[in-house]
């Protein structure tokens, strides 16, 4: 059985992913992929937009954010904000720089994936964080 298939959200329980990415093609591809996998996806292209969504009362189950974003704040700021104000929301960070992994720290609800990423791997990580909140052993 395809392990990704087994991790897909079940019908009727559509988790909402906040996707924060300023590069349109990357955001579009990821959004379409996650929608096809049964997620609701809210697209934001910078941290300000992400915060507006989070403060709007929209229910968000997980955040997938680029670390490098335009404006005064990047994904690291968003991750810190979420840790303080929405500590139960899992956050998957991404960057082309491998040292971005340090931003995820030791919190099991904070993970990092390096760019370019395989969307199936991203899906697997998000589903794991949604399912258990911590990574399960392979």
């Amino acid at each position: 059985m395809n392990p990704v298939t087994s991790l897909r959200p079940q019908p009727g329980a559509k988790p909402t992913l906040l996707l924060v990415e300023d590069e349109f093609s990357t955001r579009w591809a990821a959004a379409e992929f996650f929608r096809a996998e049964g997620f609701m996806v809210v697209e934001a292209d910078d941290v300000n937009d992400a915060l507006m969504v989070l403060l709007s009362g929209k229910s968000i189950d997980a955040v997938f954010s680029d670390l490098r974003l335009p404006g005064d704040h990047g994904g690291e700021f968003l991750s810190t904000w979420l840790e303080k104000h929405r500590p139960n929301i899992p956050v998957l960070l991404t960057s082309g720089r491998t040292d971005g992994a340090t931003c995820a720290g030791t919190n099991p609800l904070r993970r990092f994936v390096v760019k370019p990423y395989d969307l199936r791997e991203v899906l697997r990580l998000v589903c794991r964080m949604l399912g258990r909140g911590i990574e399960m052993p392979d």
Binding site: R35, E43, V53, K58
Partner: peptide, 22 residues
């Protein structure tokens, strides 16, 4: 972002494929 989110979600519920642009 909030306008785009609300409108896009509604149109998806209507059955359309929606691409969001900024």
């Amino acid at each position: 972002v909030l306008l785009r989110m609300a409108l896009s979600e509604y149109l998806r519920d209507c059955g359309y494929r929606v691409i969001e642009g900024v």
